[in-house]
Amino acid sequence: APHGPGLGYTQLNCDDPETEQAAQVALDYINTNLAGGFKHVLNQIDKAELWSRRPAGEIYVLELDTLETTCHALDHTPPEKCPVRERMEHAVEGDCDVQLLKMDGQFRVLSVKCHSSPDSAEDVIKLCPDCPLLVPRNSTKVVHAVEAALAAFNAHSNGSYFQLVEVSRAQLAPLPPSVYVEFVVAATDCVAKEVTDPTKCNLLAEKQYAFCKAAVPEKVDAEVSVTCKMFQTQPVVPQPQPEGTSAPEVGPGAPMTHQADVTAAAGPVL
């Protein structure tokens, strides 16, 4: 349709306070609704358009460049206080196309589409030839490293047996040959010292997550170092159910629910 009066768009200045405010609302939405991985912070606003909307309001169409932080999605640290992943740790950037509606002075996220990609290996090696490089999280070396790290963690646990939830990132270090892994675990209803069959252990209804970092040397019988940060337990949140459906299963074997999923439906309002 031809553009009528008032239906066109205006190119905004990417560094305008209002554009930055819209970008921040989008970033908050992205970080609140992460299914896993790490929180991101704004690095650069690539494009900003303002479209008028009928019958009322304005639509902000933004292209955002983000950078991965070291805070896991389950970490409650505000993203602005999270350190950006350094280039020597093999940084990861995000490219996001977002649309926000501004009405009555309030922003509401309409759509978000993000794609993340790591820095190129060549760039990291140029910066430091011995820096560990990111590798696929499902590679054999990584899977073995995570298993070894989790076994070491559980061997020293005086309480619950912890189960793997997610492998968040993995790097291969050349000297000495080691695998650096970052992963999420959750407490189960089994006692670590008494577990005989881990497959029979169930995640607790009130989720107790921990984020772990481990260095696993490739040399056989070398010492594995693993440190985990426990997060506050996440209370069981009843999910709104459509009429005629039964209440959600919240037993120990119920599927995991991130609190972020609950806020997704409503959308953030500034």
């Binding site: 190119q11 905004l12 200045n13 560094d15 690095n43 650069q44 494009k47 900003a48 950078l67 950037e93």
Partner: peptide
């Protein structure tokens, strides 16, 4: 360069509204 009176100034034309500033580093 001929600038018409009342047209955009050269300074205004030089302003690049986007992309915006880089806050950390560019990959």
């Amino acid at each position: 360069v001929v600038v018409k009176p009342g047209g955009p100034s050269l300074a205004a034309a030089a302003v690049r509204p986007c992309p915006g500033r880089i806050r950390h580093f560019k990959i």
